[in-house]
Structures are given as C-alpha cells and as structure tokens.
C-alpha cells in the first residue's frame, strides 16, 4: 500500500509537469488550430536558460529563491523566443493547411534543439535546484520534495491562468478568438496578438515544465522526449479542452508511474522501460473508444 501511494504521488508530481506542457499545446491549438511540435525544444531551452541563470544570480540570493527567480527569468526568456518564432515562421503561414504549419514546427524544433543541446553538452547539466533528490516522510510514506514543488507550481500556474482567462480583457479576447476567429475580428479583437500571446504563454509554460523536470537529475539531451509524453495527455483530454489537458496530464503521469512500479512484477513480458511508452498505449486504447478524447469536442461535418 505504501509503495502504491508513493508511486501515485510520484505520478501526480510528474503528471502535473505533463499538465503544464499539455496546457501549452492546448492554448496554441485553441487559438491557432495547430499543434506545435516545437514545444519540446522550448522546454529544453527553458531548462538550459535556468541552468545558466541560477549560478549567475546564486551569490546574491538564497539558493531556493535563486531557483524560483531563475525559473521566472527562464519563462520570460522562452516566451520572448516563442514570440519571435511565431512572428518569423508561423504568422506568414496563416490560412495555409494546419498540417503544413505543424511540419514547420517540427523543423523549428529540430533547429532550436540543436542549439540548446550545444549549451547542454554531452552529459547531464545540473540545474541548481535546492531540492535534488531529498525527501521527507509522513509516517512510512516517503515523498520527494521536487514532486511537491511540481504540484505547487502547477497549482499556482493554473490559478493564474484561470484568473487570466476569466477576468482580464485579453483573456476574454483569447477565448473569443478561439471560439470564432472571424466574429472576434469584427468585434475588434486583434487576432494576430492573440496568436502571439498564445505562443508566448505556451513557451513560458514549457520553460517552467523544463526547469521542474530537470530538478533532481539535471537537464540532458534526451529530455525532449519527455515533452512528447504530453501529446498522449492532450489526446486523452481532447485537443481543445484545458481541463482535459490537466486531467490528461495527471492521468498520464500516474499511469506511467504505476506501470513503472508494477509492470515488472505482473507483466514482465512487456519488456524493460515499458513505462516510457505506456502513455502511447493508453492513448491508443482511449482513442479506440472515443476518437476525440475524453473532453474534446467532436468535429461536426456539415454536408
């Protein structure tokens, strides 16, 4: 039971990072209709920025505070990068088939990731987080601090996002543009800045996720594959549902963690490291039953 709970909490921790990434994907999808395959690159660049900023500001601030400030700086830096990318490569493609735009983001991902990898080097690069792999215990239950930090950060981000979309003018504009682009245009919403904002937000969220994921073991060149695990999460939840993204992210994290703990014991024939691909398996199973995910809007064909 203790082992199960520990795996469950571990899954919730990692799952909340997936949720951050998934929200980024969904925000871009809702406002522009495109899935940005450049998110892994944004995530890894965010982690790289944080890993360079922490030592630079570490001597002025307390270690914990330095990491939090570095995370914010990283998020802003990657948001700026995403803004630039959107302006240079995505805006000219407005009106072109979404598939073509999606492929462009794959190209961007490859190019940005090479640069980021150059700054990481061949091994893992420590990110300077105050937690490492330290843990605390509640009774017999051992919990890693970093997983708690992941959950708290995600909860804070969700609260801010909720406030932004609910109570600010620009949040309302973004919702309007996502609902009906042309109607929003006629009401004076600048759809161009909505596109830019959605990319910037997704970039910032990806940077936060990257910094959180790299706590403990540090950032290495293979970390981008983790960002792709957010894709099953958004498929589970439905591409256009923010709540679905959060639930899907948590579900994927928990399933991955539980499979990692129990698969060797109950189904060893699935092979080592099956946990890494279990999100994709889960995604296929859900799609067989519900082609538009659990919370997605079915596409209505009008003939």
């Amino acid at each position: 039971m203790i082992a199960f709970l520990e795996a469950f909490i571990r899954g919730l921790g990692i799952g909340s990072v997936y949720a951050l990434l998934a929200i980024g994907f969904v925000i871009i999808y809702k406002s522009t209709g495109v899935i940005s395959f450049a998110q892994p690159a944004m995530m890894i660049s965010g982690a790289v920025v944080v890993s360079y900023v922490v030592p630079a500001i570490g001597f002025v601030l307390l270690p914990g505070l330095a990491f939090i400030v570095a995370m914010l700086i990283g998020a802003i830096a990657i948001a700026a990068l995403a803004l630039g990318v959107e302006r240079a490569a995505i805006r000219p493609m407005v009106g072109r088939p979404v598939f073509v735009v999606a492929i462009i983001t794959i190209g961007l991902d490859i190019a940005i990731r090479v640069v980021a990898n150059g700054f990481i080097g061949l091994g893992a690069r420590p990110i300077g987080d105050p937690w490492g792999l330290t843990r605390f215990s509640i009774g017999d239950l051992q919990v890693q601090w970093r997983h708690v930090a992941m959950m708290i950060t995600t909860a804070l981000v969700l609260a801010v996002l909720f406030w932004f979309f609910r109570y600010t003018r620009f949040g309302l504009a973004m919702r309007a543009a996502a609902f009906d682009q042309e109607a929003a245009l006629t009401q004076g919403v600048s759809v161009g800045s909505v596109f830019a904002m959605s990319w910037a937000m997704a970039g910032g969220l990806a940077a936060l996720a990257g910094a959180l994921l790299a706590t403990g073991a540090g950032v290495d060149q293979q970390m981008w594959i983790v960002a792709l695990a957010a894709l099953p999460a958004i498929i589970l939840g439905g591409l256009d549902s923010l709540e679905g993204a959060v639930i899907g992210g948590l579900a994927v994290g928990v399933v991955e963690s539980l499979v990692g703990s129990y698969q060797r014991q109950f189904a060893p024939w699935l092979g080592d490291n099956f946990a890494v691909v279990s999100p994709y398996m889960l995604m296929l199973l859900v799609l067989l039953a519900r082609p538009y995910g659990l919370f997605g809007t079915p596409e209505v064909k009008r003939v």
């Binding site: 999606a102 792709l228 894709l231 099953p232 498929i235 994709y280 296929l284 799609l287 538009y292």
Partner: peptide, 9 residues
C-alpha cells in the same frame, strides 16, 4: 492532427 499524433505514438 489527431492522426499525426497517433502515428507518432
């Protein structure tokens, strides 16, 4: 894009 992600999986 649903198809793209599934084939990626």
């Amino acid at each position: 894009l649903y198809l793209a992600i599934v084939t990626l999986g």
